[in-house]
Computed example of a mutant assay.
Amino acid sequence: MADRRTLVRPPPLDPNKSAIENVLELTELTQIGPDMFTNTRPLWHPPGARGIYGGAVIAQCLAAAQQTVPTNFSVHSMHCYFVLAGDATIPVMYYVEHIREGKSFATRTVQAKQRGKAIFTTTMSFVRENSGGRKTVNHAVPLPQNIVPPDEDGSEVDDEEGNGPFVSKRIEILNKDSKDPHEKRTRQWIKAKGRISPQGGHQAHLSALAYMSDSYFIGTVSRIHDLWRFGTPPNPPPNGKSTPEMEHRRQYMRKLKESEGVHGDAENVGEGKRPEVGMMGVVRLKEERPVARAPGSKL
């Protein structure tokens, strides 16, 4: 099993599906047990990162759970916890637990495991389409004006082959000069490459959104607090020769910094310079209320 990144040999890419659908494809393990899945294709380990790209685990947990609820149910909340760094050299196993089965709501808990230990866990709530009655209340933040979408051929965050499944474009930080971090706003335009297939349904679109959600989001912390987030350059090897892995990481970090207007290591950590991020996390508090329903209706 050493350096076996998938449990079974990956099939050829499906040309009828978008790149992100192929990346997130799951293999169901019905012969081993019910509601068990594993990654069909190898998962990306960003250069310099502690483990695999977190968006892949988020999205595949969602994709696994979606296969255990009726097709007319959509996820409306997802609470995620990263427990351990994922290892890109071995498969990830996804275990779906049925917590609630209702007429309008369903709840699932999914654990992503490697070597028998959970690396990620999430609890999701699903709601049946049009179960809120005839009248519902909706609102959304309006799309910013004069925003140029990203090019289909380019991406600011790619995988190790430079062929990531989505494209992204950074948008300037609002209130960047404010002394109060809570007044600043970071924004990003993201979209899946190509066109998600009709057979993927709304589930494929939601899984794609979950995959892309881990890009740029946590970096908000360092950007609004003006922290150096690119890490300390690795020490040179004793023999003075750079390894392919070190060169790969250097090229990736250079591309990432250039995408944000940072060049070289002139702003790196040290006395009198910007402090470096050691470890960070983002906490989002969300109040959830039942969906408004018409008088006399039942859940």
Rank of each mutant, 00 (worst) to 15 (best):
Q66T: 11
N130T: 03
R170S: 15
Y211G: 07
K193T: 08
G51N: 00
A208N: 13
L285T: 15
P12L: 04
E152H: 03
P234F: 08
R274E: 11
V141E: 15
V92T: 12
F120H: 10
G86A: 02
A59G: 03
H45S: 14
D177G: 07
T232F: 07
V96S: 07
G264W: 03
V221D: 03
S297G: 10
P11C: 00
V167S: 03
G194V: 08
R250G: 07
C80W: 00
V282C: 13
H76F: 11
G162Y: 05
P12A: 10
T121M: 13
E97I: 09
T40S: 09
P142D: 13
P34E: 07
G278C: 15
D153E: 15
K179F: 00
M78W: 00
R185P: 12
E271D: 06
P149E: 09
E161C: 03
D14K: 10
V282P: 07
P150L: 13
G162E: 05
G200C: 14
V8R: 01
P290C: 06
A210M: 06
W189S: 01
R50N: 12
G48Y: 02
G116R: 01
G296N: 01
A140F: 05
V110H: 02
E260K: 06
P234A: 04
M93I: 15
T136K: 14
